[in-house]
Amino acid sequence: MVRFWEQRAKRGIVTEHPEWEEEMAALRKGLKKGIHKHFAGSLAIRMVDSGSCNACEAECNALSNPYYALERLGIHFVASPRHADVMLLSGVMTFNMLPHVLDAWEQIPEPKWCITLGDCPLLEAPFTQTYAIEGPADTHLPIHHHIPGCPPTPEEIIRGLLEFLKTLG
């Protein structure tokens, strides 16, 4: 334990990719401003997976690693839809998940927005229609914004959220 802190002190804060850091800093600033303006500094997201391959979730989890540290900007992934402003939907809409997704959407108080994450919800990923898939998500929900990618990288998700904020004016 002592050794750990020694190393930690010796190392200090490391910036490994200065250019990338600069770009991220600009993105973060934009996000923070947008969130401040439209959501009083705190944007609550309820992530719902309606049939993903789990890579989209992995990238969302990566958003909280120290490189991206999304929480610092006031973006929170919340446990209950009742605390959410936004539903972030990943995966194809499966027959078995559809009623639960609609249920979660209903529980989110107005005003609310649905953002689709990755190519799956709009059926643009390689998966083809089967009996178990209930068409593209926009046939069931009002999709306000889409973040494309398979999966979208954490950076692309951050850019996507920024674009979403811009659509709000």
Partner: peptide, 11 residues
């Protein structure tokens, strides 16, 4: 489980 069943085998 099987909420995420996409029908991969049939697909």
């Amino acid at each position: 489980h099987f909420y995420k069943h996409r029908g991969i085998e049939k697909m």
